[in-house]
């Protein structure tokens, strides 16, 4: 049994027990397995990769093989308590539209993404003049699936523009640890950002 990843634990702690969850880009189903185990959650994962889909089926995770860029139109409004997008936002074609879709099919959204504002990223780009490569962003510029990288501040601005209310946020480092300094300077020291949000209520 591997120790629980901190980002999983944070997401789990944010959720009400027995929730219905849709996990977009669910990978091998680890998060859904964790949420089922620890929070009694149920739901589905969407995944495009063959090997990941097979792995989900092997471990008994509900998985639907699909391309997130094709949208979530097969899901009805408010079908889920939470729609989670874990480390995938930066790899989709239209992040803004997907956020809209998440809040159409779910009551709340939870997003995690690698923070492009991290100091090491800034150092590599700003001082060394090279596209950043790190534990959170392991690809080279020519083979990266990450086509829409953003910083914490970028994400928050998008939420504001789209009428999305951020309910909670956290940052962790690449080993998914939290430290005091991270809380003080999240957009510089945070490698992975986590947000919980919902559609802003009209004033």
């Amino acid at each position: 049994m591997t120790p629980t990843r901190l980002d999983f634990r944070i997401i789990g702690d944010w959720m009400k027990p027995q929730s219905r969850v849709l996990d977009l880009g669910c990978g091998d189903g680890s998060l859904l397995a964790y949420l089922a185990e620890s929070k009694g959650a149920s739901g589905y994962g969407l995944e495009i990769d063959d090997a990941h889909v097979s792995e989900c089926i092997r471990r008994g995770i509900n998985v639907i093989q699909t391309d997130l860029d094709a949208g979530l139109s097969e899901f009805d409004e408010r079908s889920f308590d939470y729609v989670v997008l874990s480390l995938t936002l930066q790899a989709v074609r239209y992040p803004d539209r997907l956020l809209e879709e998440m809040l159409r099919v779910g009551t709340e959204g939870i997003v995690t993404f690698p923070n492009f504002g991290h100091w090491r990223t800034r150092w590599q780009l700003g001082v060394l003049g090279r596209m950043p490569v790190s534990a959170a962003l392991p690809h080279e510029w020519y083979n990266t699936p990450n086509i829409h990288l953003c910083t914490l501040r970028d994400f928050e601005r998008l939420c504001e523009r789209e009428g999305i209310e951020i309910l909670e946020s956290q940052v962790v480092d690449h080993a998914h640890r939290q430290r005091l300094a991270l809380r003080l300077f999240p957009n510089i020291l945070g490698e992975i950002a986590l947000y919980r949000f919902r559609r802003a209520r009209l004033p």
Binding site: D50, I57, I61, V63, I64, Q65, E74, F75
Partner: peptide, 21 residues
Amino acid sequence: SREIVKALHDNDLNVSYAEIN
């Protein structure tokens, strides 16, 4: 097949779907 999948998840049933190349 996706129509079947949708009708099953609309009923909150356990369903998995794979598309084989």
